[in-house]
């Protein structure tokens, strides 16, 4: 049911997420994809692209700019609706949860738009998961670094071995019911304060 002639306009300031979505859409056979990464003169550009479907990330304040297209106005060529089928609350909810909104221009049928929305929702969700995993990996790396520094400080100031320093940190963390990284951070901070 993929209609590859549809023109899809993607408005997203996040270059990685939009590339992920664009790839997916191209793989699915859609070739007319226009990506805008800035919202400067948005309406004029929307009119010149004249898309069938507009996808915009929900964190983008320019959603309100697009809403101007709903207005009875001389500048709009074709009527615009948000989400094909308003009765399909589950689809709207899935899109909002994924962080994207879709505007469908002039009476496109549900069957023609559904594969695009499904693809968008799953790619937005995948990107979100990826970002969270990346964030977690970053913070774990930062924690490991701070623990290494705390161990070094303890080894030097107390003249103990690496293993002993680590046991000391872990024991303190357990006694104070805190995370190992928090105790390590206080050691580093204290060392900085005390010179």
């Amino acid at each position: 049911m993929v209609d590859t002639r549809l023109t899809i306009l993607l408005i997203d300031e996040n270059p990685v997420r939009s590339a992920i979505l664009e790839d997916g859409l191209r793989e699915a056979g859609y070739t007319n994809i226009v990506h805008l990464d800035t919202t400067h003169e948005l309406l004029r550009r929307v009119f010149s692209v004249d898309p069938d479907v507009i996808l915009i990330d929900l964190a983008n304040p320019s959603r309100d700019v697009l809403e101007q297209m709903f207005q009875v106005s001389r500048t709009v060529k074709r009527p615009v609706a948000v989400f094909v089928d308003q009765s399909d609350t589950a689809m709207i909810e899935a899109a909002v949860d994924a962080g994207v909104s879709a505007y469908i221009v002039d009476g496109l049928k549900k069957e023609r738009i559904k594969p695009i929305l499904d693809m968008t929702i799953s790619r937005f969700n995948a990107f979100d998961r990826l970002s969270r995993e990346l964030e977690q990996a970053r913070s774990e790396l930062a924690e490991r670094k701070v623990i290494e520094r705390a161990k070094g400080i303890l080894m030097k100031s107390r003249g103990i071995g690496e293993e002993e320093a680590f046991v000391l940190l872990r024991k303190t963390a357990m006694n104070e019911k805190k995370k190992l990284a928090e105790i390590a951070q206080s050691v580093v901070t204290a060392a900085q304060l005390l010179g």
């Binding site: 929900l58 964190a59 983008n60 304040p61 320019s62 959603r63 309100d64 697009l66 809403e67 609350t89 709207i92 909810e93 909002v96 909104s101």
Partner: peptide
């Protein structure tokens, strides 16, 4: 929220 459109949609949902 970053837009009035989001406010309306989240009230709707």
């Amino acid at each position: 929220e970053t837009s009035w459109a989001n406010i309306r949609d989240r009230i709707f949902l």
